[in-house]
Simulated assay, not measured.
Amino acid sequence: MINDTLHIGDIVVGAKQPFSTENRQSYLILNFAEHTETGDALIVYQEVYTGKIRCGLLETFMAKTELLLANNFCFSQACITLGEKHKFYPGDIVRHFKRETINEQELSSGKYLYEILYYAEYLEEDVVVYRALDALAEEPFKMWVRPVKMFESEVDHEKYPSIEQQYRFELAVRRTNNSTIMMNR
């Protein structure tokens, strides 16, 4: 997703309320994504004061904020997850269950492999922000946002009886400090 006004690393603040300078929050722009179910253009941002990561509609976010510092990369873009309540970590590579159905060429392109980038909140729901690793896709490395409940759900084996994978997404690679853990399949 290309945005001509906001860029990754920009710092924005909440637009001034009439007669008030209180409660103006600063936000660090982390990335842009598309909601998997609605197709909405979303922005992934971090509240500078609390460190909380959120998603919001790009159009609404732009209407309610104003640019403070353009392309300011001095802030850490470290991900603060929503506790340890999720089965994946930022940086994990996961495979979608449909990876079982593709040919060797598609396997080598990274089709149905995704990198977990952040956990965030969107409309008071936990969501996962992730990007495709398919180098041959129409939009390679596209960013997506999906509700965590759906992301971590089991495969519908009635709809997909030949799929062996138990969950919609399963761990393929986890990097820890100086090592990499590769999962089978």
Rank of each mutant, 00 (worst) to 15 (best):
residue 149 K to P: 10
residue 108 S to W: 08
residue 105 Q to D: 04
residue 147 P to N: 07
residue 56 G to I: 03
residue 64 K to D: 10
residue 84 E to A: 15
residue 123 L to Y: 02
residue 21 T to A: 08
residue 57 L to R: 00
residue 115 E to P: 01
residue 79 C to D: 10
residue 50 T to H: 10
residue 49 Y to A: 15
residue 148 V to I: 11
residue 58 L to S: 10
residue 88 F to A: 10
residue 120 A to W: 00
residue 32 F to E: 01
residue 66 E to T: 11
residue 94 V to C: 06
residue 117 L to C: 12
residue 64 K to M: 06
residue 59 E to V: 12
residue 4 D to P: 10
residue 163 I to T: 12
residue 55 C to T: 02
residue 68 L to E: 15
residue 8 I to M: 05
residue 153 S to E: 09
residue 158 E to S: 14
residue 163 I to D: 09
residue 84 E to N: 15
residue 71 N to K: 02
residue 19 F to P: 06
residue 146 R to L: 11
residue 101 T to V: 07
residue 38 T to S: 04
residue 123 L to C: 00
residue 170 E to F: 00
residue 179 S to I: 05
residue 112 Y to H: 15
residue 179 S to Q: 03
residue 88 F to S: 15
residue 145 V to T: 01
residue 126 D to A: 14
residue 4 D to Y: 04
residue 30 L to N: 00
residue 112 Y to Q: 15
residue 125 E to L: 10
residue 78 A to S: 06
residue 149 K to R: 14
residue 69 L to S: 06
residue 68 L to Q: 12
residue 162 S to D: 09
residue 53 I to E: 02
residue 31 N to H: 03
residue 73 F to K: 05
residue 3 N to M: 02
residue 133 L to K: 00
residue 181 I to L: 13
residue 67 L to P: 09
residue 70 A to N: 11
residue 29 I to C: 01
residue 127 V to R: 00
residue 39 G to A: 15
residue 62 M to D: 12
residue 70 A to P: 01
residue 97 F to Q: 05
residue 97 F to C: 07
residue 87 K to L: 15
residue 101 T to Q: 02
residue 125 E to W: 13
residue 166 Q to F: 05
residue 102 I to D: 02
residue 11 I to T: 14
residue 65 T to W: 01
residue 75 F to H: 04
residue 139 E to N: 09
residue 51 G to S: 08
residue 102 I to Y: 01
residue 55 C to F: 03
residue 60 T to L: 13
residue 91 G to N: 14
residue 79 C to V: 08
residue 53 I to V: 13
residue 167 Y to C: 08
residue 103 N to G: 05
residue 92 D to T: 06
residue 65 T to A: 03
residue 122 Y to N: 06
residue 102 I to R: 00
residue 126 D to I: 02
residue 66 E to C: 06
